[in-house]
Nucleic acid binder design. Sequence first.
RNA 1: GCCCCUAUCGUCUAGAGGCCUAGGACGUCAGGUUUUCAUCCUGAAAACCGGGGUUCGAUUCCCCGUGGGGGCGCCA
Length: 493
Amino acid sequence: MKQKTNKNKTESIIKSEVRVRIAPSPTGAFHIGTARTALFNFLFTKKNKGKFILRIEDTDKVRSQKHFEQDIIDNLDWLGIKRDEDPILGGKYGPYRQSERTEIYKKYLKKLLKEGKAFYCFEAKKEGQGRLESFTEAHFSKDRDLSLPEAKKKIRAGESYIIRFKCPKKQKIAFEDLIRKKVEFNTDVIGDFSIAKNLEEPLYNFAAVIDDYEMKISHVIRGEDHLSNTPKQILLQQSLGFPSPQYGHLPLILGPDKTKLSKRHNTVSLSDYRKDGYLSEAIVNFIALLGWNPGTDREIFSLIELIDLFSLDKVQLAGAVFDLNKLDWINGYYIRQKPIKELLKLIKVYFEKNNTDDAYLEKVVQVSRDRLKKLVNIVRETEFFFEIPKYDNSLLVWKDMQEEEILKSLKTSLIFLERTDDFQFKKEDLDVLFLREAERFNEKDRGRLLWPLRVALTGVSASPSPSEVASILGKKESIKRIKIAIKKIESKN
RNA sequence: GCCCCUAUCGUCUAGAGGCCUAGGACGUCAGGUUUUCAUCCUGAAAACCGGGGUUCGAUUCCCCGUGGGGGCGCCA
């Protein structure tokens, strides 16, 4: 079994200091997949008492935006993924934004050029280049043996160029992946890949290699979509005389159609989940289980517990479909576990318009918590606590009840509530009193009293119990609503 | 097309050659509790991609198919 070999390997690797990074580019909202990569890196780091580093890969000047960098940091904070070094915190190996490391890249770029390991390429951009380009063989440039003086002459003459790595031919690049064991590529399928637009503008594969080296990164744990970048990076490391970090490639998170999770499937931006009222505990728990499990039947874990349990050899090899159903279940679980006071703080933002007082809202949250899958639903599900409900008379009907009986039921409730003292308007008292009254009304079917009562109070078919609702609404308001219900029926005749 | 990765219920997964009559969770369905909904409890349906090896014995190890995914940018 693959895992078996991996296990021994992973453990023996960890000798020197573990330094691990995530390197997102600030070109879009923080993605749920990035969150999982970050989490796995973080868990691995903490488990091995290493350092967790955030590096911003903003070499693409046109697409990178400052506010996306902030989004990355905010979301990591929210998840509880603390950095040891990042652009804000700083650290020994900074700066942590690639846009601020131009001079470092330049130095190595010159070195590769001088040694003939990289070259200026003057070939024109290919027609229709881009990801829709028709498939081509690996490209070895005709300029790869152009001498540096010749190249410089062309540059002075104003010819446009790009810097490419001179990829050796007929060579095997193999590495031991932390998760998938041995992976092997032939350089013939790689070709002379680009490493910089010019001395000031490095490209991804090159910048990442320099930074991983300069920042003393020991393990690179990233999505499987980077698997084919790894041999390129190893090639670069070899020609620069750098040691290679250990690589581990995580399976991808997939949409329902099994392709890489993207915007056209679900929500992918973490802040959108946050806005909807998914708790960070739930997100952490859920994404941890996407492609990993501890080998037991347990499903619920805190971040701290995950650190303790985590190991790379339990990571799955194949992609995992993102199942919103399961996320909702986990979220509901964490909402139910949350102490009311804390939940109230999180929920208040959804009620900004209503301007209600905390004590009242707290009671509402208390009785509504159990049926919440995400916080944003609280508004829709508790409207009747804030305004007189509108509903169709037919909703008042329980089973085969006729109008006459409904009226009788509501009037019984009305008289009963009017007789009940204010101090008894507590859930516990009302529970007992209502039940007793309901049985008195109909020994076999308490619904004949309680259903019309509950609908009169809430106007919906699914709600907390009448005793809970009445205790929050108070005697006066409850009576008012029953009278309205009675009038609704009587005025129809 | 070429290269790489991958394969257990619908989904996330357990499984380390005999403990497998393949286990758990979400979802689904059926019951119970409850005035309703939710919670909670009980139960059910639901999977080892195919073919060859290896072995006394393969879900498990190997090979070949097939399926799925990813990559093949002057993006990261």
